[in-house]
């Protein structure tokens, strides 16, 4: 039987704003399947986003949804989580939203290891504003602000997250869908800051400027360029050029979570004060 998405969708809010060929819908459905698999209560779920195409996703979901300012999703999400630490908070951003304008918030959320899941929709471009280069636009690729080919060096979002202290970091793609379902489920279940870099395609503002004739060409590029971590690690060094590993790249199940640590401290303060009284 086909999966019924309707319990998680807000009535009357579709069709979505994404262009034909955009892969965000694939990830959106994967997220809903993961939430369903976890039997996530919608009242206890907040979806928080910044600005950009990916940031429109929460509006389609029947949950507590917050569309914030550019780059700032994680700051609002942190306030929500500190106010209601028992609730589930999932944030989503694009590559520019999370790692350019929101880069500081991204690394500090990772450092705190606060129990928020962050989906970074990496489509290698600023899509909503028409195709300007982002911190992940491949060097040499054309963008509306890199007419002659991008000269800006890139961030590796997964490595950035690991380096900044996130306790769960994974990479998935819009092509490897069953794997993405599993990754998102594990990321949401993880206690601590979990980052999932999801490789996406923007045919409209990135692909067509960069010799991808059809939207499907970018999916085939994902198929060829990303392989499971175990398979990637077996590749001889000279074969890894242009390829990246998929799956859970880093996981520390014992890392201390921020809210737990903070509220254990405050409970201790109150116990000590009561002891004195």
């Amino acid at each position: 039987m086909a999966f019924d998405y309707s319990p998680y969708l807000r009535g009357g809010k579709l069709p979505h704003i994404w262009c034909p060929g955009c892969t965000y819908g694939i990830v959106f459905k994967s997220l809903l399947r993961s939430l369903d698999g976890l039997k996530q209560n919608k009242d206890d779920l907040a979806l928080v986003s910044g600005i950009g195409c990916a940031s429109r996703l929460p509006g389609y979901v029947d949950a507590n949804t917050l569309h914030t300012a550019h780059g700032r999703a994680l700051t609002f999400a942190t306030g929500i989580k500190m106010a209601r630490p028992e609730k589930r908070v999932i944030a989503m951003s694009g590559d520019g939203d999370a790692t350019a304008i929101g880069g500081n918030h991204f690394i500090h959320a990772c450092r705190r290891n606060i129990d928020i899941t962050v989906l970074v929709f990496n489509n290698y471009i600023y899509g909503m504003t028409g195709g300007q280069h982002s911190p992940t636009t491949p060097v040499g690729h054309k963008a509306s602000t890199m007419t002659y080919g991008n000269v800006d060096p890139n961030f590796d979002i997964a490595k950035l997250a690991i380096g900044a202290g996130a306790s769960f970091v994974a990479r998935g793609t819009a092509y490897h869908v069953p794997a993405l379902d599993k990754i998102l489920t594990e990321a949401i279940e993880h206690k601590g800051l979990s980052v999932v870099e999801v490789i996406n395609a923007c045919p409209t503002t990135h692909g067509r400027r960069n010799k991808f004739k059809n939207a499907t060409d970018q999916l085939l590029w994902m198929k060829d360029s990303f392989l499971p971590k175990a398979a990637f690690e077996k590749l001889p060094a000279d074969k890894t050029e242009g390829k990246l590993p998929l799956g859970v790249l880093y996981k520390d199940g014992n890392a201390t979570e921020y809210c737990e640590t903070y509220f254990a401290m405050t409970a201790g303060v109150r116990a000590q004060n009561e002891g004195r009284a």
């Binding site: 700051t75 942190t78 500190m82 500090h108």
Partner: peptide
Amino acid sequence: IAAMGSVIGASLA
């Protein structure tokens, strides 16, 4: 900026 964002998020919660 983050401080202000956290305050708004907390209030909403």
